[in-house]
């Protein structure tokens, strides 16, 4: 019986396909590999042409020789030496990192309670979505308008000063509100907060209400439940939000340019002004340094949580 069945299968196989000796499992593996390759190739092509090659180019250009109006492909470390020995540029690197840190913290401190409310307190999904949309409403206007709108708010004769004067809290208008680092921090926090709220809300809304009830039933108070259950379970959201905010804040220049009155110079501002005066080699140095900082920050954040396991 077995013999006969084996015979039949062997005689049927060549008739079905030309590739002799290939098992169906192997054939399917090959098919799947072909499909995977087809799916991934547009992305790989795009990234190679518009990211990997330009980045190699930027590193290369940072070693070119810069004269007042031209840049020549003659290799030198002049631009690097100038950047690394100048207190102005090192200071602006430090400012970039400091502002990134403060904005990251403030978006987290403001964003987390909002996410806690939307993701955990509101259990109606329609209402959850509606509230998230409300958070995004400022994005219906352009980025620049959102930034510039802070001027009439924070200015010497702006809304905040007017209200404080009317209430009699201050006699003379506060001049440090606008065109200061404070203004840049306020502006950035407002713009990037929503990128923190979104991912955290998503993670919080996935927490089963019964898990929190179980923790209460076991005798834990609110603080314990928050730090031992809610926070760890929402940590992947915090990390994703932090990556969004970090990437955007570290590369920022517009908010600083329009709200700081040139008092705050971020690496982004340096790149813009150097490119403006055709100092390509020097702009490239700043660009490479900025890219390295962003890479370090993202790597560090990803170390905190294994996102692949959580998603």
């Amino acid at each position: 019986m077995m013999e006969i069945a084996g015979e039949q299968i062997r005689s049927a196989a060549p008739a079905m396909g030309e590739d002799n000796g290939v098992s169906p499992a192997e054939r399917r593996d090959r098919q799947e590999r072909r499909t995977a390759l087809m799916l991934i190739s547009p992305g790989v092509l795009w990234m190679t042409l518009f990211m990997v090659l330009p980045m190699i180019m930027v590193v290369y250009v940072s070693f070119w020789t810069q004269t007042t109006f031209t840049v020549e492909p003659k290799l030198t470390t002049d631009s690097w030496v100038r950047f690394l020995t100048s207190s102005t540029y090192l200071a602006s690197t430090w400012t970039t990192v400091r502002i990134w840190g403060i904005v990251l913290l403030s978006t987290l401190l403001i964003g987390y309670p909002v996410a806690l409310f939307i993701g955990l307190m509101v259990r109606n999904q329609t209402l959850q979505t509606a509230l998230l949309v409300i958070c995004v409403i400022p994005f219906w206007t352009s980025f620049l308008i959102r930034v510039i709108a802070w001027r009439p708010m924070l200015g010497t004769e702006g809304a905040i000063n007017m209200i404080l004067m009317k209430l009699g809290i201050i006699d003379t208008p506060l001049t440090s509100l606008l065109f200061s680092e404070f203004a840049v921090l306020i502006g950035m926090t407002q713009i990037y907060c929503v990128f923190m709220v979104g991912p955290i809300t998503f993670m919080l809304s996935r927490i089963e209400p019964s898990i929190i009830e179980a923790a209460r039933d076991l005798g834990a108070g609110f603080g314990r439940i928050f730090f031992k259950i809610i926070l760890p379970l929402s940590l992947p959201g915090v990390i994703v939000g932090a990556i969004f905010v970090s990437v955007m804040v570290l590369g920022e220049f517009a908010t600083a340019a329009s709200l700081s009155g040139r008092k705050v110079n971020l690496l982004g501002n340096i790149i813009v002004s150097q490119v403006g005066s055709l100092k390509w080699a020097f702009a490239s140095v700043a660009g490479v340094i900025l890219t390295v900082i962003i890479a370090v920050v993202i790597t560090a954040l990803l170390r905190v949580v294994n996102l692949r396991k959580e998603m």
């Binding site: 089963e208 019964s210 898990i211 009830e213 039933d217």
Partner: peptide
């Protein structure tokens, strides 16, 4: 609830996944 001293075993177990 956390001061009642009553145990609750949930239908879906509600274990802490982390």
């Amino acid at each position: 609830p956390h001061r009642r001293g009553i145990g609750f075993v949930f239908q879906n177990f509600a274990l802490f996944p982390h």
